[in-house]
Amino acid sequence: MGYSVALVNKKGETIKAKDKFLEQGANYVVGGTHFLEFSITYNYALLFKKVFPKEQGLYWLQGKTIKQTKKKLEKAISLLNAASESSNYWEATEGNARKALISLYKMAKLAPKKARWDID
Rank of each mutant, 00 (worst) to 15 (best):
F52K: 00
L46D: 14
K113T: 09
E13P: 03
K67H: 08
V29E: 15
Y89V: 05
G2Q: 01
Q24H: 15
D118C: 10
E85C: 07
D19L: 13
K10R: 15
I119S: 08
L47T: 01
E13D: 14
A100P: 00
K18R: 15
K67M: 07
Y44C: 07
K71M: 09
S4F: 10
A115R: 03
A26N: 10
N96R: 01
S78V: 03
P112G: 11
L36T: 02
S84L: 05
Y44V: 04
T69H: 03
L58R: 01
K99W: 04
K75R: 12
E94L: 00
G32N: 06
E55L: 07
K113W: 09
I15N: 10
T14P: 04
E55G: 14
N27C: 14
L22C: 11
A115H: 05
K18L: 14
A111I: 02
G57N: 02
E55H: 06
G25S: 06
Y28A: 11
Y105R: 13
D120W: 05
W90I: 09
Q68D: 09
L47Y: 00
F38C: 07
M1S: 15
I77K: 01
K18V: 13
K106V: 07
F48I: 01
D118H: 11
N27R: 15
A83D: 12
K49L: 06
I119Y: 02
A17H: 05
D19T: 12
A6W: 00
G12F: 04
W90E: 13
N43D: 06
F52T: 02
F48G: 01
V51E: 06
A26E: 13
G57T: 00
T41I: 02
W90K: 14
